[in-house]
Amino acid sequence: MMTVFSRFKARPFILTTGALASAFFVNIAQAAHYPVQVQSCNRSVTFERAPQAAVANDVNLTEMMLALKLRDHMVGYTGVSGWKTLDPTLRKGVGKLPELSPKYPSKEVLLGADADFYFAGWNYGMRVGGGVTPATLAPLGIKVYELTESCIHIMHKPKVSMDDLYTDLLNLGNIFNVETRAKALVAGYQKELAAFQASLKPLPQAPKVFVYDSGEEQPFTAGRYGMPTALIEAAGGVNVADDVKKSWAQVGWESVIDRAPDIIVIVNYGDVTAQQKIDFLTHNPALQSIPAIKNKHFVVLQYVEATPGPRNIDAIKRLATAFRRDAS
């Protein structure tokens, strides 16, 4: 009996010792990794440890966090249901994480969640001169990492490319000490995209593409620094608004008519459906000379595909397929 009892009592001690040893080595690894510095737009941000109460704004930024398996580091997300709905993929990914605010959060919302990290962007949860910015959150102990694509709102940056997405994923990997995971994810995206592009049939000429987000009096579109430009180019096309030196902007219908796009990309979100947008374009007499409208050459991208995030590769594939279908 004593022998059996002693062996029984020893087991939890061994397990506890193992758990303590594991925690010890994890802490050693954490200590070796930090502090780390990452570049966030025009700021260098130092992290002494991995954030434990992160908040991401918008569907695409939230999906970046989920793609890196960082849900356990999050206390919630913001800026989704006020404009969009959670699709099944995102709903499954966020699990029981609460939506803290349907639109842009206030400082009070972030403080109420005890947030220590806010992953957002300019016009993706923050506005220049607004109440929630890196400068206003710093005194509250909330560090901010800004979406690279959005940096054009506050500084000069190179033209948008897939590197914007890759940079964000790698920086998040560094911030949360999951660098190996982030590097593997980015390498996988790069390999998948390169293999797909190598398999594509060459186009006789690059199709001219216009991105239609919204607007009837004046269309709201993606310019030189908006992610759709990178997606269109990776698929073999040219954005007719490439000379618009903004990420997203209103333009005149006259300029769209003059540039005669071959294909129109519809960004689908919000109360006005993609089909309603197509109906507006096809029934507007002033736009009927546009080749894309005349030939009904439309491609629909969901908002989460058209903005920087894990679904960009699939978006490129859909665009490339449509470009070659419509060229035949």
Rank of each mutant, 00 (worst) to 15 (best):
M227R: 01
M227E: 09
M227S: 05
M227G: 05
P228Q: 07
P228T: 09
P228W: 06
T229H: 10
T229W: 09
T229F: 09
T229V: 07
A230Y: 00
A230V: 00
A230T: 00
A230W: 00
A230S: 07
L231W: 07
L231D: 08
L231M: 08
I232A: 08
I232S: 01
I232V: 03
E233Q: 13
E233K: 15
A234S: 07
A234H: 10
A234E: 14
A234P: 11
A235C: 01
G236S: 02
G236V: 07
G236H: 00
G236L: 05
G237S: 02
G237N: 03
G237D: 01
G237P: 00
G237A: 04
V238N: 15
V238A: 10
N239E: 03
N239W: 05
N239I: 02
N239G: 03
N239D: 00
N239H: 03
V240D: 06
V240P: 06
V240Q: 07
A241G: 05
A241D: 05
A241S: 06
D243V: 08
D243Q: 10
D243Y: 11
V244S: 09
V244E: 13
V244P: 08
V244W: 06
K245A: 14
K245N: 14
K246D: 13
K246H: 10
K246V: 14
S247A: 14
S247M: 11
W248H: 02
W248Q: 01
W248A: 05
W248L: 04
A249Y: 09
A249W: 13
Q250P: 13
Q250G: 14
V251D: 01
V251I: 08
V251E: 05
G252Y: 12
G252K: 13
G252T: 14
G252A: 15
W253R: 03
W253T: 08
W253F: 06
E254C: 07
E254T: 02
E254I: 08
S255V: 15
S255E: 15
S255K: 14
S255A: 13
S255G: 12
V256M: 09
V256D: 02
V256A: 08
V256T: 05
V256P: 06
I257V: 13
I257A: 09
I257K: 08
I257R: 04
D258K: 12
D258H: 13
D258F: 10
R259H: 07
R259S: 05
R259A: 10
A260D: 11
A260N: 12
A260H: 09
A260L: 12
A260F: 09
P261C: 12
P261S: 11
P261G: 11
D262K: 04
D262H: 02
D262T: 08
D262N: 02
D262A: 02
D262M: 05
D262R: 03
I263Q: 04
I263C: 06
I263T: 12
I263E: 01
I263W: 04
I264Q: 09
I264P: 01
I264E: 06
I264S: 05
I264A: 10
I264Y: 00
I264D: 06
V265E: 02
V265I: 14
V265K: 09
I266S: 03
I266F: 01
I266G: 02
V267F: 11
N268D: 15
N268G: 10
N268H: 12
N268F: 11
N268R: 11
Y269K: 09
Y269W: 15
G270R: 06
G270S: 08
D271Q: 13
D271L: 13
D271F: 14
D271M: 12
V272Y: 07
V272P: 10
V272I: 15
